[in-house]
């Protein structure tokens, strides 16, 4: 079934034949938890090589959408319009999650926390390789010097970087982020967004796609290729907007707000968010 919501033009980068292939598809996903109807008929395709942001009113079900993608929750099977499905290409992509809070284990060092993602589950990394991978991931976020520190010795921004390193260490193809810098002050947040953008543009550790839930229109527009606007609960997709900003963006990141396409996209998103329907 082809979704109506994803008829956006092909990725402007073109080139790589793999880019543009679907990595994960939510097909007609509705979700009811404890008799609360949270999501209705979500059709969303995440393609290789794209950065997608999800925005919407608070509590509408943005995080829940990510949890569907992680298969921590299952879509309703008995929806009137057929069962919801989470569809993958032949194999499930490796998925990594970054939460709003860093969720670090206070009893582990920074290195230990990063190694955690390598030492769990059926696909865990052999013990002998964990240290090297963890340290490489810490290097990516610029915290290798703090490998032996404990989380409580670090600032909030540094803790969030450790969490990002932990996620990256496991070499996710699809990185899911749930307002990852939402709890930080604006300057730290801006710095981390730029770092994230650079990691993304370098396709660090085999990244293929990023889906980020955010409350910030600026974050959504400056970072992503497409912005998904959800309606209030039960959330459906109100619209999906392509961001017409050139890539790569990290070089012009600090002055991106001054460009006309940026301002027009922000204005369009605001209109969509405030639209009554």
């Amino acid at each position: 079934m082809q979704s109506t919501a994803i008829q956006a033009p092909a990725d402007s980068q073109g080139g790589n034949a793999l880019v543009g292939d679907p990595l994960l598809t939510l097909q007609n996903c509705s979700l009811t938890l404890n008799d609360t109807h949270i999501l209705r008929n979500i059709d969303l395709e995440i393609r290789q090589g794209e950065f997608v942001s999800i925005i919407g009113p608070s509590g509408c079900g943005k995080s829940t959408t990510l949890r569907l993608m992680l298969e921590l929750l299952k879509p309703d099977a008995d929806d009137s319009s057929g069962a919801g499905k989470v569809i993958f290409p032949k194999v499930r992509p490796r998925r990594g999650m970054a939460f709003q809070k860093p969720v670090l284990m206070p009893w582990l060092t920074v290195r230990g926390n990063v190694e955690l993602s390598l030492s769990l589950g059926p696909q865990k990394t052999p013990q002998s390789l964990r240290r090297g991978k963890a340290e490489a991931a810490l290097e990516l976020v610029g915290l290798l010097a703090y490998a032996n520190y404990y989380p409580k010795q670090l600032s909030g921004g540094m803790q969030q970087r450790v969490a990002l390193a932990r996620t990256l260490a496991a070499e996710p193809e699809l990185l899911l982020m749930d307002e990852p810098f939402g709890a930080l002050d604006e300057m730290t947040r801006d710095t981390l967004n730029l770092e994230l953008l650079k990691l993304w543009e370098n396709r660090a550790n085999g990244l293929k796609s990023i889906v980020m839930v955010t409350h910030s229109l600026h974050e959504a527009v400056s970072l992503s290729d497409r912005v998904v606007v959800l309606s209030s609960r039960p959330a459906g997709i109100r619209t999906i907007i392509d961001v017409p900003l050139p890539k790569p963006r990290s070089a012009g990141f600090v002055s991106i707000e001054e460009t006309q396409p940026y301002q027009q996209t922000i204005a369009r998103l605001r209109r969509e968010l405030h639209r009554e329907d």
Binding site: L70, L72, M97, F99, G121, K124
Partner: peptide
């Protein structure tokens, strides 16, 4: 907390883990 639990489930950690 709920997030730690989710983090572990994200990596399909076993009950023992």
């Amino acid at each position: 907390d709920a997030e730690s639990d989710e983090l572990f489930r994200t990596y399909q950690a076993s009950r023992q883990e």
